[in-house]
């Protein structure tokens, strides 16, 4: 027991033990159970699940909406991360409050607010009509566009903050050095600034995408039952349909998706780190 020669390791024991017993073990058990049938090891629940075209639509809904949410968050969050790092004090404080305050308010509160915002007479509809983009008010609630807009709003801080944290570390002298050597502004951005922001982009995209894949409250309130995602299907099969078999299967698929995102993003982050 070489490890125990250092007694400070024992301080980690309570937390590690706690999570092992109450979190890792149950997760492992869920995983094991989903692969075991009456006659031992089986893949039957999965072949059944993937054999049903409805479930493919569920997977498509899940990945499609998560992708759109991520794209919207990145489109707003990338320039916003720069703005937050480089704005003057007043604007920076306004942005920090606008980012941190919603983070401290619960998702049920925000999703409920979006139910109001997305109504036919809601703020978004009024705004688009006033701009002349829409001829008449329309309801966005219970549409996929509404879901994407609401979810992007709720997850946007998780895109801005990682990008902000890398932008504020970029040494402005790098770009100046590029300018001295005759690089045009666009060339400087593409070759100097942009590569340096990539680690922030990767972690922001990973956060937003994995949260969008597993969101449950937001789709329940903003789009309803006819648009099922892996997450809502998992919840429904446990809470309403009492179909634990289906629920365990979708839960394991969700788990695999989440782990894939984590592994892919940390691999990307390592690769980006090593090329610097």
């Amino acid at each position: 027991m070489k490890a125990l020669r250092d007694p400070v390791v024992l301080l980690a024991a309570p937390a590690v033990l706690y999570l092992t017993l109450l979190y890792a073990l149950p997760l492992g058990w869920l995983l094991a159970k989903s692969f075991s049938g009456p006659a031992g090891l089986t893949l039957q629940p999965y072949t059944e699940f993937f054999g049903d075209p409805f479930n493919w639509r569920v997977i498509g809904n899940t990945l499609g909406s998560a992708l759109w949410v991520t794209v919207v968050c990145l489109a707003i969050g990338y320039p916003a991360g720069f703005a937050l790092a480089r704005a003057g004090t007043a604007m920076q404080i306004a942005m920090l409050v606008a980012i941190i305050l919603p983070l401290s308010v619960g998702v049920v509160v925000k999703a409920f607010a979006w139910q109001i915002v997305l109504r036919r007479d809601g703020v978004v509809s009024q705004f688009l009509v006033a701009l002349g983009i829409w001829d008449e008010p329309q309801r966005l609630l219970f549409t996929e566009a509404g879901l994407v807009l609401g979810a992007a709003n709720i997850f946007l801080p998780f895109m801005i903050l990682p990008i902000y944290s890398v932008v504020k570390l970029i040494d402005p002298r790098l770009s100046e050095a590029g300018a001295t050597l005759g690089a045009t502004p666009s060339y400087r951005f593409v070759r100097i600034t942009f590569p340096l922001t990539l680690p922030g982009v990767v972690s922001g995209v990973a956060f937003v995408f994995s949260m969008s894949v597993s969101m449950y409250v937001i789709p329940s309130l903003l789009i309803g039952d006819r648009f099922q995602t892996l997450s809502t299907l998992t919840g429904r099969s446990f809470l309403f349909m009492r179909n634990e078999q289906l629920g365990s299967t979708t839960a394991v698929i969700l788990l695999a998706l989440a782990i894939a995102v984590v592994v892919a993003s940390s691999w990307l982050a390592r690769r980006l780190g090593s090329t610097e």
Partner: peptide, 26 residues
């Protein structure tokens, strides 16, 4: 560069308005 600065300002404003909307509406 002017365009890039303008984009940053727009993004900052959009962020503040967009993120505060649900709270203000509530």
């Amino acid at each position: 560069e002017t365009a890039a600065r303008a984009l940053m300002w727009v993004a900052a404003l959009v962020t503040v308005v967009f993120l505060m909307t649900p709270l203000v509406v509530t």
